[in-house]
């Protein structure tokens, strides 16, 4: 398979006189294969939108290399722009034009036939409201218009930054079908979203970013498998013994992923019997020891270290920081 999108070591640094330097992208890598629906995940402020903006030539990177459809960016952007449809974070439109005018002007600028406008309006369900001014649209209707504008050129690569933002449940399900259909017709879709259940349903592969660096990537099943492998839930006879058990296990090199009120979640456990033995040696008796299958959400929270901790308010930018050399967990392609 060939890569439709390649990013290597991308860096973007914002400087401000007051707050100093912020590395929004800090050596970020990403690779998307042709024909895939690729999920782009990360906590707030991790650099997703910055990546997409840089890719689309809206902001200048401070370093790194990017390519779309095998063409180096930003140099080749004018030649590939016609094959890349994109929406970037709650897109805005001139409020006094109607949806049809807005799309008509874009189609004209891109030298597309006029009937294409009606096709995409039909596709996103705005047909009957297309003559009204954008100002009068609801959030979801604006989002649909944005998706329509990205689909207008019938692109090879479709980049959608939080397209589900504001969509109703029916709209989200429709979007899911649309993405699937587009991918089957040979389009490659990059999708940034915080709705991980959705991503798990429609994406073939994902990239997870935290603080401007990639923390995980690969096909969804692989990412899940790598992280559900050896995840076990432990309950003890006496709940009060849980802290001591957590300490014992940590000392013996077993990772305690989360400590809940009545159980522990362990990860990377090869032999569950080992857990049972270690605890018994300390006079702690296990009442339950179950392997669990995790979902993308738990993997995401663990990888980015953004799971809520009772009694604490996590601030943005408080997430996993990986060193430049390896990826957390050490798996993936």
């Amino acid at each position: 398979m060939s890569a439709v999108l390649e990013i290597e070591g991308l860096r973007k640094t914002y400087r401000s006189r007051k707050r100093g330097v912020r590395h929004a992208l800090d050596g970020f890598d990403m690779r998307v294969e042709a024909g895939q629906v690729h999920g782009f995940l990360g906590p707030n402020g991790s650099g997703k939108t910055t990546t997409l903006r840089t890719l689309l030539g809206l902001i200048r990177p401070n370093g790194g290399r990017m390519a779309i459809l095998g063409q180096e960016l930003p140099h080749a952007l004018p030649t590939v722009a016609g094959r890349v449809g994109a929406i970037v974070e709650s897109p805005q439109f001139f409020p006094h034009f109607s949806a049809r005018d807005t799309l008509g002007l874009l189609a004209q600028a891109g030298e597309l036939p006029r009937q294409r406008v009606d096709e995409v309006l039909e596709l996103v369900g705005l047909r009957d409201r297309a003559g009204e001014r954008v100002k009068t649209y609801s959030l979801g209707m604006k989002q649909r218009l944005a998706v329509a504008s990205a689909l207008l050129k019938n692109p090879k690569l479709l980049i959608l930054d939080e397209p589900a933002n504001g969509l109703d449940p029916g709209g989200i399900r429709e979007m899911r079908g649309l993405m699937r259909g587009l991918a089957e017709s040979g389009m490659t879709v990059v999708l940034s979203s915080h709705i991980l259940g959705e991503i798990q349903l429609i994406c073939d592969s994902v990239t997870i970013i935290s603080l401007g660096r990639r923390v995980a990537f690969g096909p969804v099943e692989e990412v899940l498998a790598a992280h559900s492998q050896g995840t076990v839930r432990v309950r003890l006879e006496a709940v009060s013994d849980l802290p001591q058990a957590a300490e014992t296990l940590t000392r013996s090199g077993i990772r305690v992923a989360t400590s809940e009120a009545d159980h522990l979640m362990l990860s990377g456990v090869d032999k569950p019997a080992e857990v049972s033995r270690l605890l018994a040696e300390q006079g702690l008796y296990v009442s339950e020891l179950t392997p669990v299958a995790v979902d993308l959400e738990s993997v995401f929270l663990e990888l980015t270290a953004t799971a809520p901790v009772p009694g604490q308010h996590r601030q943005v930018d408080q997430s996993a920081k990986v060193d430049q050399t390896g990826t957390a967990g050490g798996w993936g392609a």
Binding site: L56, A81, G82, V88, Q92, L106, A109, G110, S149, K153
Partner: peptide, 11 residues
Amino acid sequence: GGMMNLLLWRP
């Protein structure tokens, strides 16, 4: 944001 939209078409 109209300028940004247009630049996605005409970089």
